[in-house]
């Protein structure tokens, strides 16, 4: 049951993205930006928490979850560090993910060459 909720939540979030791609011709870069910002705003409004409570990883694995994480991080930092937390909270919460992605990108460059398609 738990996994079904995860599946449906994640599935719907991805399906909405596909609908946007088909209907609006938005490129994937724009979709990702839209998702992060949306997740962050919904996080700030306290709405995304409900989605996470319901859908678990279905809500955190899509990029909206990354945005939600930024909102959570900044609010936590404001609680702890006050005004300056506004500027550091987002980056702090994203640091791990971005750091890993940079490292893995570089490692991939060591081992792989560009490949042709088709």
């Amino acid at each position: 049951m738990e996994y079904l909720k995860v599946f449906v939540t994640g599935g719907i979030i991805c399906a909405i993205a596909e609908l946007l791609i088909d209907k609006t011709k938005l490129t994937s870069g724009r979709i990702l930006v839209f998702y992060v910002v949306t997740g962050c705003i919904l996080g700030g409004l306290g709405i995304y928490e409900y989605i996470e409570n319901f859908g678990g990883a279905g809500a955190t694995v899509p990029l909206t979850g990354f945005g939600y994480n930024l909102a959570k991080g900044v609010m936590k930092e404001v609680d702890e560090a006050g005004f300056l937390g506004i500027f550091t909270g987002g980056f702090k919460s994203a640091a791990g993910g971005i750091g890993i992605a940079i490292l893995f990108s570089l490692i991939a460059c060591v081992f792989f060459k560009p490949k042709s398609k088709g």
Partner: peptide, 21 residues
């Protein structure tokens, strides 16, 4: 491609943080 995601993700987090403050 990922740059804009970080730029606008972090910016929106600052907006959220500012309002929250």
């Amino acid at each position: 491609i990922a740059g804009p995601v970080i730029v606008y993700g972090i910016t929106s987090s600052m907006v959220v943080g500012f309002i929250y403050y």
